[in-house]
């Protein structure tokens, strides 16, 4: 437990001390939130209703997808995992602690957004706080798992950026942050349902913000948790201590199984 506390404490401080992580955990989400609040809410007043969940989802996407994978790949490339292994640091700590500390940073960001948006931009507060917190945790858990999995299977930093952007960019465009899910063409809707952001926005609308969900909001929450569990499980299974060690337990393409809950959801929640 003492070891866990020291590890957690170091990783949490690294999230502020490391400029790249500080940018992804705080500066980028909060800067974008303020920009969108001051500009978008003026251009498109109905956006005020979505600003809290949309900026929360954006913050989670930025801090996890853009913040977690690269340090994991760099640590593996630079022999840090080898050093950790020799000193008895378990792989579960290596994978879970950065995810937990990122979620803690996100809680701080979420508190700031939630309580300043009504003051700054006349945004409505959630109507169900318990569901609001639950959906935030589900989305953060799903995205942290996905990000850790990307960090585990990416062979290099360059590939990490590619994989992360493959989820980040469509999430921004189709995830319901800028444009309501109901306004998307039918084919785009199916694709959008593969994204955690879409599920989170649907759940926020139906369960926390007093709006109408496009499809089952509880189904979305279950899918987020299921994909998070699957992502962490796959990351543990595919984890490799060393970039030069070719004896991985499974093929990296197995990571695509993380999409399974969303694929099942498309058919079950249609």
């Amino acid at each position: 437990m003492n070891a866990f506390i020291h590890h957690f404490s170091f990783e949490f401080r690294a999230g502020i001390r490391n400029k790249q992580l500080l940018l992804m955990n705080y500066l980028f989400p909060l800067g974008f939130y303020l920009l969108m609040g001051f500009v978008m809410a003026e251009i498109n007043p109905p956006f005020r209703e979505d600003i809290i969940p949309a900026m929360l989802v954006f913050g989670i996407l930025a801090a996890t997808l853009l913040g977690i994978p690269d340090p994991l790949v760099n640590a593996r490339e630079n022999g840090i995992f080898r050093s950790y292994k020799i000193n008895g640091i378990p792989s579960i700590s290596i994978l879970v602690i950065p995810a937990l500390t990122t979620i803690l940073h996100l809680v701080l960001v979420a508190v700031f957004i939630t309580f300043t948006a009504p003051l700054f931009f006349r945004a409505p507060l959630p109507v169900n706080w318990l569901n609001y917190a639950l959906i935030f945790v589900a989305m953060a858990f799903a995205c942290a798992g996905l990000s850790v999995l990307i960090g585990v299977v990416s062979p290099s930093s360059r590939m990490t950026v590619l994989w992360s952007q493959l989820i980040f960019v469509p999430s921004m465009l189709l995830g319901g942050l800028m444009l309501p899910f109901s306004m998307l063409p039918e084919a785009a809707r199916k694709f959008a349902q593969l994204l955690p952001a879409t599920q989170a926005m649907n759940a926020f609308n139906g369960l926390a913000m007093g709006k109408v969900a496009a499809f089952s909001p509880w189904g979305s929450v279950i899918m987020l948790f299921a994909s998070g569990v699957l992502a962490f499980g796959l990351a543990m299974y595919l984890f490799s201590w060393d970039s030069r060690n070719t004896t991985r337990r499974g093929h990296p393409l197995l990571a695509l199984l993380v999409l399974l809950p969303y694929v099942v959801g498309i058919f079950m929640l249609a």
Binding site: A14, N18, A75, I80
Partner: peptide, 14 residues
């Protein structure tokens, strides 16, 4: 190890 094997932002104390 021949490579440093420590995170960039860790301090000796930590």
């Amino acid at each position: 190890l021949q490579s440093a094997g420590l995170p960039e932002s860790i301090t000796p104390d930590e």
